[in-house]
Design a binder for these strands. Structure first.
Lengths: 114, 114
DNA sequence: CAATCATATTCCCATTTCGGAATATGTCAA
DNA sequence: TTGACATATTCCGAAATGGGAATATGATTG
């Protein structure tokens, strides 16, 4: 079995960079498909397909207005993602000490990993 | 061009449920591959492959101890994910009013979406 | 060195994914 | 109704994914 269907999982849907861009673009206010196409510089069919995926997962909502369709990010659907990531917040402090320790061990910091 | 290489993007790496399970399992403390195999009930080669993906993206770190290899989640590498999701936090309040409004419009709340 | 435990890698395969091009559907205007 | 605009869908091909089975590498012990 290959990867989980992109249409059933928020994580997989968000794995695509273009879809992330779309979500960011549609978060402040609803936008036309054409607007998205122009903003992202992508092909229209491609955008429509991505929007379908996002809509199937519930990450965006659509509203028809005449000839145009206005899409808008459903930010609530992103909470599972945020919540999952937030679980690790608990361990950040714990591991921060390690990072700090390493940083202090190498004071001339510029030469990280070129 | 098909999907983005799972090995170059944290988002894609985390798209796989088993890999998420591994990350959660390895967050509190480092664990042996065998331990992961038992904990997840997955096949050993499968786990090793997932670990390789996670390590290539920097989501886990490995340490050899005799015959065994101890893996540990690098929680810092999860920050991009968290930060990206956190961008939408700003809009949650805004959209919460809509949800609230809808909830108040339907007082007999039990029948949500079973 | 041989045997064994622990982990990694390779090979094969069914399935999915995305982009591009072409085409279909839907909606408004004249 | 015809035509133009906006969006959606289908078909195609190249590339990638993850599981399973087999095998390879690494390290320890006798």
């Amino acid at each position: 079995m290959p990867r989980l269907a992109t249409t059933s999982d928020v994580f997989t849907a968000v794995a695509e960079p273009r879809r992330r861009d779309i979500l960011v673009y549609l978060a402040p206010r609803e936008q036309t498909v054409t607007a998205i196409v122009k903003a992202l510089g992508a092909a229209q069919p491609s955008v429509s397909k991505h929007l379908k995926v996002l809509r199937d997962v519930g990450l965006v909502e659509a509203r028809r207005e005449g000839r145009q369709v206005l899409y808008r990010t459903n930010v609530d659907a992103l909470r599972p993602l945020h919540d999952w990531a937030a679980v690790f917040e608990r361990f950040w402090r714990h591991q921060l000490s390690r990072v700090k320790e390493r940083a202090e061990r190498a004071p001339s910091g510029k030469g990280g990993k070129p």
